[in-house]
Amino acid sequence: MKINTTQWVLLGVAAMLAAGCATSMHPDEARTKAAAMMKASFKDRGQAKVTRIDQDDMQKNCSIYSGGNVMPKDLAARLEKAQQALIKYPADGKLLGDWKAGERVAQAGVGMQFSDNPKNPAGGNCYACHQMTKAELSYGTIGPSLYNFAKLRGYGPDIQRYAYGKVYNSQAFSACSSMPRFGHAGILTEQQMKDVVALLMSPDSPVNK
């Protein structure tokens, strides 16, 4: 079959349309489709329900501003402020628990997986991401080293309050931090968080030796 000029032009237009269709979809569209696809691709199991795919304002914004897409400073400040308002400090005003109990919380990695018994307490799994003591060599590097946390920053009440707030809601101090919001999400109890703060803040804790 011989192709005439008009047919060549039509072929060209078709090729351009095909090329246009072949470009990446808009990130907003990809995120919308991904969320819908995930809701249809996961199922409830034990305590882990499909509603965990849903995102709050912070999670949504941190998903948008990732992969080289930098979050505007004013948005980061707005998110941090909103998260700060969600922190509940202990009613008794005491922030330091028992550092030995805090060490056990820092070591424990279980909690809220569908394979975990929801009746058992969750751990903080601090060592998964942070160096904390000299003795524990099996630590991760996703977060900064917390070795000598209070020795470097001071043992005063303002640092204690910062440490409790950071464990309770890391996003309040650094929008889109990789660290879970242990208090906000109900992962750790108030007592567990006090114990972790003691691990970081007590002068006799191995963190500060």
């Binding site: 990809a30 489709k33 696809m37 965990r52 995102q55 990732s66 992969g67 996003q171 992962i187």
Partner: peptide, 19 residues
């Protein structure tokens, strides 16, 4: 291409109790 783009969005999708 669609699967790749959606897969990328899934990779960056933050949610759940641990964010």
């Amino acid at each position: 291409r669609e699967a790749y783009d959606i897969g990328r969005a899934i990779f960056f999708h933050r949610s759940g109790p641990y964010d």
